[in-house]
Simulated assay, not measured.
Amino acid sequence: MEDKSWWHRFRRTEAFAGYTLISPTALYALLLLAAPLATILAYSFLTDGDTVTRIVWEFTFENYITTWTQPIYRAVMMRSLSVSMMVTAVTVILAFPVAYYVSFHVAPDRKSLWLFLITIPFWTSYLIRVFLWKVILGYNGVINSGLKSLGLIDEPLTFILYNVNSIVITLAHAYAPFAILPIFVALEKIDRSLLEAGQDLGESRLMTFWRVTLPLAMPGVVAAVLIVLIPTIGDYVTPQLIGGGKIPMIANLIQSQMLDQDNRPLGSALAVSAMLIVTVVALGFVLLNARFLRVKK
């Protein structure tokens, strides 16, 4: 009787109403996010079999030992991390001035137009945008043709495509709106009277930006960093097309193990290792940001 009465009281609480409201979303996330992650994690501890039995249900750490001890896997993992960090740095550094200009220098009635223009790249497929950059950077692409028509070069430049720099440029352009928007939102929340107070106290514009604007905008910067860093380290299309398949990243290696070599346990171990590295790097950045804000205070 007590259980029934407790359940009856609980059903009438706001907590129960909240759980009921979020339960469809929670179930959706559990089925489509947690279940695949759990499957990948389970596969990573299994043993690769022969051509008949592709997976042996025997628990092993061999896949992780191979992932972390084989030089080729470590090299590709470090390359993926370095490329992702370069893309994140370039994207955020270029996105901040754009977001700052729109927030502080564009008239309020025209900000929506600027945001509309910023989101125009979303109108086309990501794959199409990557192909367009391949056309721009190609041997007979827009840049080489333009430089040749101006008489600046005699032969097409070959170093602007199929290398790390071209991958960074393409990914930075693709993820620029994802970095601009959260920074813009953070800048919009800043009370302008705080900036005026800083200047009234004798601070220069540069010091006011460093001591007031930047710390208050850091939540947006952190969001932009995470939004760019996490997906770019696992990008598959850009290294394949812009890198010409010559500069594989971790996603290309996972695809090769999963599909080409049909070694799902090792491919799963690579995927889990990449996720762990991203988690550690992201947490490290968040902690450094928190320390930066404490120093500013």
Score class of each variant (00 low, 15 high):
residue 261 Q to N: 15
residue 247 I to L: 12
residue 255 Q to A: 14
residue 260 D to Q: 12
residue 246 K to Q: 03
residue 244 G to I: 07
residue 257 Q to G: 07
residue 256 S to W: 11
residue 276 L to H: 06
residue 265 P to G: 10
residue 278 V to D: 00
residue 258 M to V: 15
residue 258 M to K: 09
residue 249 M to H: 11
residue 262 D to V: 15
residue 270 L to V: 09
residue 272 V to G: 02
residue 275 M to A: 12
residue 250 I to L: 05
residue 277 I to V: 15
residue 269 A to M: 06
residue 274 A to S: 11
residue 275 M to S: 11
residue 243 G to Q: 01
residue 269 A to W: 06
residue 270 L to A: 07
residue 245 G to H: 04
residue 266 L to Y: 07
residue 257 Q to R: 11
residue 274 A to M: 10
residue 258 M to T: 15
residue 276 L to R: 07
residue 249 M to E: 11
residue 259 L to D: 09
residue 268 S to P: 02
residue 248 P to K: 10
residue 244 G to D: 09
residue 254 I to G: 01
residue 271 A to Y: 01
residue 255 Q to W: 13
residue 272 V to Q: 03
residue 269 A to R: 00
residue 265 P to A: 13
residue 260 D to S: 12
residue 266 L to K: 07
residue 256 S to M: 15
residue 262 D to N: 12
residue 277 I to T: 13
residue 271 A to D: 05
residue 264 R to F: 11
residue 269 A to L: 01
residue 245 G to I: 07
residue 260 D to A: 13
residue 273 S to Y: 09
residue 271 A to L: 08
residue 269 A to K: 04
residue 278 V to N: 00
residue 275 M to K: 05
residue 250 I to E: 02
residue 266 L to I: 10
residue 243 G to Y: 05
residue 279 T to E: 08
residue 278 V to Y: 04
residue 259 L to A: 09
residue 266 L to C: 06
residue 278 V to M: 07
residue 251 A to V: 08
